[in-house]
Design a binder for these strands. Structure first.
Length: 481
RNA sequence: CGGCGUAUGGCGCAGCCUGGUAGCGCACUUCCUUGGGGUGGAAGGGGUCGUGGGUUCAAAUCCCGCUACGCCGACCA
């Protein structure tokens, strides 16, 4: 365990890595850019998986699994796709001691290998829509890595769907980006801006990429999830046609969408503090820790603590008691704060005599007395709900405070490090590239969130901040991870 | 792939400039103590100093090569 966590204000990167390592979430392995996800970190992923998987199933999707290895010829079928992904692929050249006749790419994403199957599965409009999700690992040989945010290998889910019409595919794209938005906001307590990517930022092989963008505590943007409208690009590349009701042959329309273990990084960077991790109750596998203060009649205190834990667990609140005598209460307070347990209950002989316990909120540090009466489990449950809600509100307020609307390029440059910048853009790739070159800020999203659009009048025409040419609307710029 | 760093016990580091055969904190083991914010104390175990070569009576330390990793850029979820 690290002795101390570097304060956020001093060095945000160091704070992040100290936190990830000292909370025992993950470590770098000896393999370049690869991460070992430790049980504490994996527990967060399992909670995310459970919630997301439920949402996928509820929207009609099923899970399947496709091969890790992709023949080189598959990868090469879609021109933009190979161009985008080939440079960052790990490639297997030998197997069983022999050089392979065709190289195998370790999947950087599974569009190609999946569409090779879909081609065989789809003949008629009756086979559509095909709504499949895969939980898997993928490999991208990135130049620079960062725990959870960008590692050579990472875990994710990737949905791949096939549709009989462009309208239906577009509906799916929107449905899934909204699933991600809901998950981010309601489970992760992370406010996001939903919208489209510009041409230069979209997925290799997509017609259009939708995304959710979040703000971290260093005011940089993080792409938290994407949903792509692949048009007929992959269907054409893999010759996947279906017979319509009218008997004509048409290429199918496709979507793909994914979120990764990067969300764990987002969760950490959005909520945690200098004491450690802060987990939203909905993603905490351990929501409440009871720390008994063991003095006087120790057994009586332990007994009471266990009974409270049983009661809370019965009410669906994941509670455990740390009754070890190896460590002092102060040590336990610090340890469970480091691990981000949303609520700590302190219970000592004094409290038992007064028929109450002390509840300490991880998010605010606030301590309050909670009576040990019939309403106890209800009080704890609503406290957890309050924590969930106030974490979201705090993150939203932070994002709002650090979102600026600017009208001149000078103001833009002055604000480039201060958060999200809302400004008019002429819609050209040249302008986008120039601004990136000069300020490092990129267009994160062309918002499609109704409330966000209204709040900042995003869709009103104006004048491009850079070129002075007419602009159809404002977009969100920021420095990004 | 460019720039800068780092490599010493499980983790974090000092020692290197000025060569003399390795030390500190945390963690770990045993015991006592303490317990409402990382108790205090005592005694222990654990290291071919990344790697290959060179200089030297002697190299963690000086010189050259290599490798790995990290940070900052370009690329990306």
């Amino acid at each position: 365990m690290a002795d101390t966590i570097t304060p956020r204000e001093k060095d945000y990167s160091q704070w992040y890595i100290d936190l990830v390592r000292s909370a025992k979430l993950a470590d770098y392995s000896d393999i370049r850019g690869c991460m070992v996800i430790r049980p504490n970190g994996y527990a967060i992923w399992e909670k995310m998986q459970a919630a997301l998987d439920g949402m996928f199933k509820a929207t009609g999707h099923v899970n399947a699994y496709f091969p890790l290895f992709i023949p080189e010829s598959y990868i090469q079928k879609e021109a933009d796709h190979i161009e985008g992904f080939a440079p960052e692929c790990a490639v297997v050249t030998h197997g069983g001691g022999e050089e392979l006749t065709e190289k195998l790419y370790v999947r950087p994403t599974s569009e190609t290998v999946i569409w090779a199957s879909y081609k065989k599965w789809i003949q008629s409009y009756r086979d559509l829509p095909l709504l499949i999700n895969q939980w898997a690992n993928v490999v991208r040989w990135e130049m620079r890595t960062r725990l959870f945010l960008r590692t050579a290998e990472f875990l994710w889910q990737e949905g791949h769907t096939a549709h009989a019409s462009p309208e239906e595919a577009q509906e799916e794209v929107l449905r899934m980006i909204n699933v991600y938005k809901t998950f981010a906001q309601e489970h992760m307590a992370l406010p996001v801006i939903m919208g489209r990517k510009t041409e230069s930022e979209k997925f290799a092989g997509a017609d259009e990429t939708w995304c959710i963008e979040a703000m971290m505590q260093d005011k940089k943007a993080l792409q938290a999830g994407t949903s792509h409208n692949l048009g007929q690009n992959f269907a054409k590349a893999f010759d996947c046609q279906f017979q319509t009701r009218e008997g004509k042959l048409e290429y199918v329309w496709a979507t793909s969408w994914g979120v990764s273990t990067r969300l764990i990084g987002a969760l950490i960077m959005a909520h945690s503090d200098d004491k450690g991790l802060v987990l939203p109750p909905k993603l905490a596998s351990r929501q409440v820790v009871i720390v008994p203060i063991l003095k006087g009649n120790k057994e009586a205190v332990k007994e009471k603590a266990r009974n409270i834990a049983i009661e809370l667990n019965k009410s669906g609140i994941a509670t455990f008691v740390d009754e070890s005598e190896q460590n002092s209460p102060g040590w336990k307070f610090a340890e469970y704060e480091l691990q981000g347990i949303p609520l700590r209950l302190e219970l000592g002989p004094r409290d038992i005599a007064n028929n109450l316990c002390i509840a300490a909120r991880r998010d605010t540090g606030e301590k309050l007395k909670v009576p040990l009466d019939n309403g106890f489990a209800g009080s704890i449950g609503s406290l957890l709900e309050q924590i969930q809600e106030s974490m979201f509100n705090r993150a939203l307020a932070y994002r709002d405070e650090n979102t600026f609307e600017v009208a001149t390029y000078d103001d833009f440059k002055a604000s480039a490090d201060n958060g999200f910048i809302i400004a008019h853009w002429d819609g050209s790739e040249e302008t986008e590239a120039k601004i990136k070159e000069e300020t490092k800020a990129t267009i994160r999203v062309l918002p499609e969130d109704r409330d966000f659009i209204e709040r900042y009048s995003m869709h009103e025409p104006g004048t491009c901040i850079y070129s002075g040419r007419p602009s159809k609307g404002k977009v969100v710029f920021a420095k990004a991870y």
